[in-house]
Design a protein around this nucleic acid. Structure first.
Lengths: 377, 377
DNA sequence: CTGAAAGCGCTTACAG
DNA sequence: CTGAAAGCGCTTACAG
């Protein structure tokens, strides 16, 4: 009853018009237009337009009068008309592989808060799978829909880069450097080094790695996994510890990926006394496997993650905080700056700080390893 | 260098125009307009418009020729012009308290997939805090920006309901029933009953509750917390077990909320042998506290959650799966149906199935409790 | 400081 | 089946 009345008879005291859109006839409320405000104020529509947008060239008196009348009749400029006239959408597109993943949720929320504070709308594009990614970049999906684009955790191919450039919009990448677009990210390599150094400083010499492999069909090729691996290796080598293939296991960036990799690590010729894991979610999986195997963390093995996931505290996981929400905020801010300033020559590249968060999944190895260096196969 | 050229000199072989928008002068690429296609095809623009949108009334031959030419010149109708002309935006607004929370990420992703498959854009509105919620509903934020609205986990006040109705758009609520709008949700009460019945069937008689309290400034007043509480009480009473105030503790829907509530439960006059927790995230917090207290789950105490969170498997948490992504999908589908069909009299209310997921956080109580019934203070 | 008019790029009765 | 014209509701040179 009520339902029907909503669809078919909009509240009175509002003019209504019948617009046939698509298959169904829908009712759309018609609210005050600029013309009505102009008539009431006894001025031209152009003056109303200028007054309401605080464009210079209107006397203070008329401007105020127009504003009052606009507020009175509840006038709001039609976004679509304004967009058509100016070409400015007041919208920022956020392109994300998968909104259901914790990492991207943090970024979306952080970036969204900044964008909303600037009065902009957020258009969310979720790639989903490789096919979705292809469709997004092939079609000119964004044309006329956004003023700027924030792209998360994607290593863009030449064609994709070109496709974005053709849009003519400012683009900022998150989690990935770029020669062409602005970027916000952390120094993954340095962060990984400090994680492994923490383990070294505790006295560990046999340190395993659970890395993020490249199997994800959407984020494939992105650099953080590689940089974290490189940081791990650098730290070991700098400490004079040779790399061991058996101690490096990889999996998808997920709990189950961590479980599988840790399981493989447990069947290594000689167990590591500590493991650096490429993401907290993988570390959760690793912790689960260790528990199942009857091993105690950190007594039998130390584990350090990467992210500072919401749940890493309750899991008591030592990890690297990479301020993900802050990265999202910084990326949005950079985008807004780019929108209002003519930027210089090089695309800006902002590096966000990381920090080690100590919890109780790391500790000195049980038996001080003095001979472990020479234990290789 | 490259950067500058992006902003100032769009790729050649594309016409370009200088549009002054706001403070800065920006370049916008001008791509083919409908007129160009019409000229090339030797027809009127109206024919092109009809041909490209598969509107009947164009001969097959001309339609195909026009489509070919459009593809050739890469013509795509300007979304803003089409919107202004039709009033249809091809966009659905998703209104969410906090995109960073796991629950909402699932919904956004599920609903988004369905909406994208239908060719629609997703406009994300994150309320953030009470002030954000107020702003959203006071201003006619959505006017002219969306064809339909999906509202997550909000118990709407009369004014907010009215504000949405004034928009004249189809609205679907998720996680909340409504007299006015369509809704998708689970039967929280029945699900809670089955959770508690599981504990009863295992032989538990002293069953505690960790409930979601109403402190969240945005989602305050939503019914799932109340329904789950009601289901808990119903199950106990149906089993002839009197309620005990000390065994009901509440907290914010978060890990720390679960920690605090479990801590209070641990200082109850007599410990429960099992606890039903209103959400998995709270259950994670509860598990953490129990571990810290040196108690073993499920030997000393059984814990059952609600959600089937991604991480509940690795936490080995028995829980109620409520198919959150499925709820998001169903809500989006309902919205699309509403958009294309003139719906009947009553707002549709779709109930999604829940199911018990058995893991190893629940087990029969250690000592069979025969006298516990009379242990109250 | 203000206004009349053109224009943004489509869609849709209306007429043929 | 096709076209000419009006209209969607703004903004912005241009002229005064």
């Amino acid at each position: 009853m009520l339902w029907q009345s909503i669809r078919n008879s909009p509240p009175r005291a509002n003019a209504s018009a019948c617009v046939s859109g698509g298959s169904a006839v829908t009712w759309a409320l018609v609210t005050a237009r600029i013309e009505e405000v102009a008539e009431r104020a006894g001025v031209a529509v152009s003056t109303v337009s200028r007054a309401l947008r605080d464009v210079p060239g209107v006397s203070l008196a008329t401007r105020q009068r127009i504003k009052d009348i606009a507020a009175e009749v509840g006038y709001l400029a039609s976004p679509n008309a304004a967009r058509l006239a100016t070409g400015v959408t007041g919208t920022v597109a956020v392109v994300v592989p998968d909104a259901a993943k914790w990492f991207f949720g943090q970024v979306i929320s952080g970036a969204g808060a900044v964008l909303r504070a600037s009065g902009r709308d957020v258009l969310l594009y979720e790639l989903g799978d490789a096919e979705g990614r292809r469709r997004f970049f092939e079609g000119k999906t964004l044309r006329g829909r956004a003023d700027a684009v924030l792209v998360l955790s994607l290593r863009l191919s030449t064609e994709e880069t070109q496709s974005l450039r053709t849009l003519g919009l400012p683009v900022v990448l998150l989690g990935q450097g770029s020669e062409v677009f602005g970027s916000v990210r952390v120094d993954d390599r340095a962060a990984a080094r400090s994680a492994v150094r923490h383990l070294l400083n505790l006295g560990h010499r046999r340190i395993g790695l659970i890395g993020i492999d490249d199997a994800d069909e959407v984020t494939t090729g992105s650099t953080p996994p590689l940089s974290r691996l490189a940081g791990y290796r650098q730290s070991l080598l700098a400490a004079g510890i040779p790399l061991e293939e058996d101690l490096e296991q990889f999996g998808t960036n997920s709990v189950s990926g961590g479980e599988l990799a840790m399981t493989r690590l447990l069947s290594a010729p000689a167990l590591p006394t500590a493991v650096f894991v490429g993401s907290d979610e993988m570390a959760f999986g690793a912790l689960g496997v260790l528990r199942t195997a009857g091993m105690t963390v950190p007594r039998d093995i130390s584990v350090i993650g990467f992210d500072n996931h919401d749940l890493s505290q309750v899991m008591d996981l030592t990890t690297i905080d990479q301020n993900i929400r802050g990265q999202g905020e910084a990326a949005a801010e950079l985008l807004l700056e780019t929108l209002s300033t003519a930027l210089g020559t090089a695309p800006p590249d902002r590096i966000i700080d990381t920090r080690l968060v100590l919890r109780r999944s790391t500790a000195p190895p049980a038996d001080i390893p003095t001979s472990s260096k020479k234990e290789e196969t």
